[in-house]
Design a protein around this nucleic acid. Structure first.
Lengths: 237, 237
DNA sequence: CAAATAGTGTCTTTGAGACAATATATC
DNA sequence: GATATATTGTCTCAAAGACACTATTTG
């Protein structure tokens, strides 16, 4: 039935291609995802992931598109951007006969000031527990958030902290607290320390601090080895 | 600089969206990937992954597109199709200013007869070791194959056999041999049996066989529990 | 010294690797 | 019985959980 198939591929109508961002941050002791309230139809006034349309004249790659859309929509490019999944279908977006969404996960520091982008009424940090429960989200963004949460938790479970997740320097107990907040459950102190040290991803600094009326903790940074974790495999976005 | 950004998103030119298939099979004791020789430019006469252009008038989803393209290009829809990665960029394909490729991994039974699709000179099963070494492949398909191989090996390592990987019934030693062929290295007999049985993915059948001049092995099938492994998470292609 | 958190010691459990021993077919 | 593979037994090791203990700071 597809007999005219020998023509050049470019003649076929192409779908609308968007890049959506699952931006995370640790705030008030729990993992939160950034939602934006849509200013226009479809799903007007509903909350969803910030995102934008791929611009083939501006974007060199999907990774670059994700950065640009971060800047345009929330005023900043999230760090540690990594592709999570690509979804597409005929009935995802009424504005186009076929719509594709390439979803990226990223981090921002909790204290960074976000700015409202175009076509957005408001931005809001939502705890991922709530976001998973709420069925009020636009499109299939609830599922996409769920995938992104699974993804970042898998990384943290293996002590692969996405770039931008950690402060420049930190103590092991601070690293553990952060991990617990991302994973959503407590971790054993001894086991965590053992695993982190065995992995040899830390460099001990010759300072000390973290006051309080108690013994201070040693300060560490990520070493170079742990930064090289991005292979070509993660780079081809 | 992007001041006219308030217009409807659909006015932007969209990229060429393709779906490429990394189809695997076990043959002659090793994991092989199916390559096709291109009949037309670009990369005329070079080998690459079989693939095709997304047809928004025919395909309900990317998963459906992968099935259709399987049928069109190699005469059969691979089983256990799962999305691996999406790549895109300005200079990937000279036929379009921007080209996207959504890569799916799938399996076919080794004895199935393939048929040559359009725009393909020939099909060839290439051991993944060779495919990884050859830098002769079209586009960035060498990298895509590498990703797909990592993906299927991760699954098999965790005893998650993609649909179509296993015959309907099999013995534990046969399952181990298959796993070793996919992983590319031998496994410990006792450990493998322990892990498989502990995972409770098998149902023992009341037959027996696998002749030869030796003790016969028990016959198993995958149970229903192990089939339910496809959650909504893997379904949204 | 009291309080509070950092860091260590160590017992136990679990899962995996190694390898020996036993079981059951065919010839 | 000889042979070949299936299946089990068991020793060892490595990683993780549990929990008690020690260390070091401030007030």
């Amino acid at each position: 039935m597809t007999n005219k198939d020998n023509s050049e591929p470019t003649i076929y109508p192409m779908p609308l291609v968007r890049v959506d961002l699952a931006v995370f941050s640790i705030q008030e002791g729990c993992l939160k995802v950034l939602l934006s309230q849509r200013k226009e139809a479809p799903f007007k006034n509903k909350w969803g992931l910030p995102g934008g349309v791929l611009r083939i004249d501006l974007d060199e790659s999907f990774h670059a598109a994700a950065k640009r859309i971060g800047v345009e929509r929330i005023g900043i490019a999230p760090t540690g951007l990594q592709q999570v999944v690509t979804v597409g279908g005929a009935k995802r977006d009424p504005r186009a006969p076929w719509a594709v969404s390439v979803v990226f996960r990223g981090m921002v520091k909790p204290d960074l000031q976000l700015s409202l982008g175009k076509r957005i009424n408001a931005l809001e940090w939502r705890p991922v527990t709530d976001a998973g429960a709420s069925s009020e989200l636009a499109f299939d963004h609830r599922d996409l958030i769920e995938l992104a949460v699974i993804d970042i938790r898998n990384k943290v479970r293996e002590l692969h902290f996405p770039e931008g997740t950690l402060p420049d320097t930190f103590t092991i107990p601070e690293l553990q607290a952060l991990s617990e907040e991302i994973l959503g459950h407590p971790l054993d102190k001894v086991t965590f320390r053992r695993r982190v040290l065995a992995k040899e991803i830390l460099v001990e600094l010759s300072e000390e601090l973290r006051g309080g009326a108690h013994r201070p903790a040693k300060i560490y940074t990520l070493n170079s080895k742990s930064m090289k974790a991005k292979t070509k495999l993660n780079a081809n976005n």
